[in-house]
Design a protein around this nucleic acid. Structure first.
Lengths: 122, 122
DNA sequence: CTTCGTTATACTTCGCCGGATATAACGGAA
DNA sequence: TTCCGTTATATCCGGCGAAGTATAACGAAG
């Protein structure tokens, strides 16, 4: 069991964003959305779980689908509560690759990050 | 010498940002600003070189100075054309650590990044 | 002591992005 | 065929950050 020392700050960490000309193609938010869609099978549920409006989730999905060579998310409508959203194989690939990038990056940065982190204001 | 194959896109790459609660403490922009200040010795020159307004550069410096345990940039005013800005030892440390994080991260992400990149729309 | 280019900071305006609202389209279930 | 919850999309509006304007403070140089 780790002693938390006395560090009250929670959400300070490096985040990776893939950008093209001021547009964020893929970042932590979109990755979490993809993951939630994959797990819950719908836009609405994913949006609710992440605490964002349905519209925002839908617009993010649009950006994702248009930003890559092929759609990452397939959506179907119709049916009371049977609307569906799922990741295409490419969507799964993109999500997996992004997670790999996050993991590997974080591991590689760890020593420098620990030192930098100690310099941040409390 | 590397053949550029036939890829016209230039500025697609992963960028690292250190955030705390929606505020960006340090990212590519602020790092470049620190570097320019160190090289040119003044806010004005640095702002001009980076194509941003003096005010913006000054506000970024303020954020940087307040976001860390001690100021990263020292500024002196007065003297026709003799105003100065320079990095404190801590400023140099922070910049160096960020660059190390960038380098190590990019190296670690490279394989996954190459695959992900090929999936981005042309 | 005047000049001048820089740092420092308040104020105001403008653009635009986010979110809320509203509504249509869809199709499985009953 | 009707109901209903989801996806899909246009439209409107407010708040907030970016940027411009203005002005003060400063101090080396001459």
């Amino acid at each position: 069991m780790k002693k938390r020392s006395s560090r009250p700050k929670a959400t300070i960490r490096p985040r990776i964003r893939i950008t093209r000309a001021e547009d964020i193609l893929l970042g932590p938010g979109k990755a979490d959305l993809l993951e939630a869609i994959q797990r819950l099978g719908g836009l609405r549920g994913a949006a609710d779980e992440l605490g964002m409006s349905y519209m925002r989730a839908w617009k993010l999905v649009q950006m994702l689908n248009r930003g890559f060579r092929a759609p990452l998310v397939l959506t179907e409508r119709g049916g009371a509560g049977h609307g569906k959203a799922s990741l295409t194989p490419m969507g799964k690939s993109v999500l997996a690759l992004y997670r790999r990038m996050e993991t590997f990056s974080l591991a590689a940065m760890k020593p420098a990050w620990k030192r930098l982190r100690s310099l941040i204001a409390p």
